[in-house]
């Protein structure tokens, strides 16, 4: 009787350590005042955050990431939500099964393969080395996350609520706007957050389709690692993680409020 909770606790902590250890290993290095990315830390300073916001390459990359991330979030959320609505409740049909697979495919196709293809195609349509090109590329790999989240949210909606709204005089578009979308909103928000996060840390596609002007933070970190390993990377990573935690907390709070209210 006592053994089970104990083994649970041991296994649980092992998983948490496995997942969190890399984060805790890199985070303190963001506050080093040494120019080397290694332990022990001689003394603490905020110089690398300063570097991040003042050095031109870093500042540009942060702005780029925000532009591309926002564009990707909007595009992927809209398209993914529309796709989920279209695929809703049609699990039996072969055709719709095919479409569903197509939408989820970018999750399993190697990014390198997508990248090569997109590079060739974007060059032909004048999208290579443009913000729009990068946003489109990021949208392709962000859509599956939106589709998965929104589909799950839609599955949780009792169809009778929509029938009730219709019987009370709401035409389909009003049912969608006032019942279906508000009820699916937690899933849509999760999908949007995932889309933004996907865009933020996407490197491979960015390498293929972005020009020097669309250098994102992730891309900048990647090249910094290759050229000169500076603790600015750790500072950037710190911002990434802190940002993610803040967004996740916000999403959690929004959901909780909706559930309680």
């Amino acid at each position: 009787m006592k053994a089970l909770p104990l083994s649970k606790a041991v296994f649980g902590s092992a998983v948490v350590v496995f997942l969190m250890a890399p984060l805790f290993a890199i985070l303190p290095l963001a506050f080093t005042d040494s120019v080397f990315l290694n332990y022990p830390i001689p003394s603490f300073s905020l110089r690398w955050f300063d570097e991040l916001f003042t050095a031109d390459a870093w500042r540009r990359s942060i702005i780029n990431s925000l532009i591309i991330g926002a564009g990707t979030t909007v595009l992927a959320t809209v398209l993914g939500t529309v796709a989920s609505l279209g695929l809703r409740g049609r699990s039996v049909s072969l055709l719709f099964g095919f479409f569903r697979t197509v939408f989820l495919l970018p999750m399993v196709v190697p990014a390198v393969v997508l990248g090569v293809g997109m590079q060739l195609m974007f060059a032909q349509y004048g999208l290579a080395n443009t913000y729009l090109g990068v946003i489109v590329a990021h949208t392709v790999i962000a859509i599956p996350f939106v589709v998965v989240n929104v589909t799950a949210a839609l599955q949780g909606i009792d169809h009778r609520l929509e029938n009730a709204a219709a019987s009370l005089g709401a035409p389909p578009i009003v049912v969608l706007r006032r019942v279906t979308l508000p009820l699916a909103m937690p899933g849509i928000i999760s999908g949007a957050v995932f889309a933004f996060a996907t865009s933020l840390d996407e490197v491979v596609l960015t390498l293929f389709v972005a020009g020097p002007n669309q250098r994102t933070v992730a891309r900048q970190m990647f090249s910094t690692i290759r050229e000169n390993i500076s603790p600015a990377i750790a500072a950037a990573a710190f911002l990434f993680i802190a940002g993610t935690v803040v967004i996740a907390a916000l999403v959690y709070l929004v959901r909780r409020r909706n559930q309680i209210a």
Partner: peptide
Amino acid sequence: PPYKRNMGVVFQNYALFPHMTVAENVAFP
């Protein structure tokens, strides 16, 4: 279509809109 039939429907599971208050539910039609 249902929204043009002007019939009140009461469902077994009530089918109240969970994201609206009681008054908003009743005001919907």
